[in-house]
């Protein structure tokens, strides 16, 4: 263990202040009793109450939730499949290019992804709405799932699959009854990650959403343009909580399965 120095303490504090002070202010002011967002007028949860009575916000929340669930599930299925083929598919032509291309959307500016998706939907005559947002989010989050799942698959002992085949499984059966249960933690954390990403996406959603399907981030963004209301603070606080929960759970699941695996391996080596 390195000794704790003043330099380290200062940089840590500075860094975290920079990262979390804005959010902290937002959270604190969501409990502000007054109407003016900049002046503290005593603790109150009335904005939360008001938020839950606002139908427009509730509708947006419902849309966001459905989009999140559908797109993350779809992204998990597709992302896992892609990861499996990239890691396990053996050496086929264009594998390196394909695995590189799979991760490109991560670094691609969202504006470009959004624009190209919009053009695609217009070209095929797909009306903008819930479906288009789900598709857009699936495209965007699938590569994140792929990254998480493929990093687990790389360390997965292939002889387990071979043993399953040897004992009479079809390849699909082997995947379902051996591979999937073992990589499940990575798949679940991939799903949570996808869900979280879908929940707080603004750029893609504003390109491909229609009038009947406003997601929460869009709602917040447009509401803020008319003036910041404490209600928005309350809503944002809830979203921060959900996102934080998702990200932390995903990393915990991953970490637990990694430490468990390490422990199992050590036990195996020790015996």
């Amino acid at each position: 263990m390195r000794r704790f120095s003043w330099f380290n303490a200062t940089s840590l504090t500075l860094g975290f202040t920079f990262l979390y002070l804005p959010m902290l202010i937002l959270i604190v002011y969501s409990f502000n009793g007054g109407r003016n967002v900049a002046i503290w007028a005593g603790f109150s949860t009335k904005w939360y109450g008001e938020l839950f009575r606002d139908k427009a916000f509730l509708d947006a929340a419902w849309v966001t939730l459905r989009v999140g669930l559908m797109s993350s599930t779809l992204a998990t299925i597709l992302g896992t499949m892609a990861a499996y083929v990239i890691v396990r598919g053996g050496r086929f032509k264009g594998r390196t290019v394909m695995s590189g291309m799979l991760y490109a959307p991560i670094v691609m500016p969202e504006v470009i992804t959004g624009l190209s998706l919009l053009l695609l939907f217009i070209a095929i005559g797909l009306d903008r709405g819930l479906v288009t947002i789900v598709l857009a989010h699936t495209t965007f989050t699938m590569c994140f799932v792929s990254v998480v799942v493929s990093s687990r698959l790389v360390t997965f002992d292939q002889s387990l699959e071979e043993a399953a085949l040897d004992l009479g499984c079809t390849p699909w059966d082997a995947f379902k009854s051996v591979t999937l249960p073992i990589i499940a933690p990575a798949v679940i954390s991939g799903w949570l990650l996808a869900f979280t990403l879908s929940l707080d996406d603004l750029v893609l959603a504003s390109f491909v959403s229609g009038p009947s399907s406003t997601t929460l981030p869009i709602k917040i963004f447009s509401a803020v343009r008319l003036g910041v209301s404490p209600k928005i603070n309350a809503l944002s606080t809830i979203m921060i909580a959900i996102v934080a929960f998702g990200v932390i759970t995903a990393s915990l699941i991953n970490k637990r399965s990694v430490t468990k695996r390490l422990r199992d391996e050590q036990e195996a080596a020790a015996s």
Binding site: D157, S159, E162, A163, L165, L167, G168, C169, T170, I182
Partner: peptide
């Protein structure tokens, strides 16, 4: 492999 009347015990055991 799954259609062969053969079973193999792996050197690495490959237990599930």
């Amino acid at each position: 492999p799954n259609k062969r009347p053969v079973n193999m015990m792996f050197q690495s055991y490959a237990l599930f």
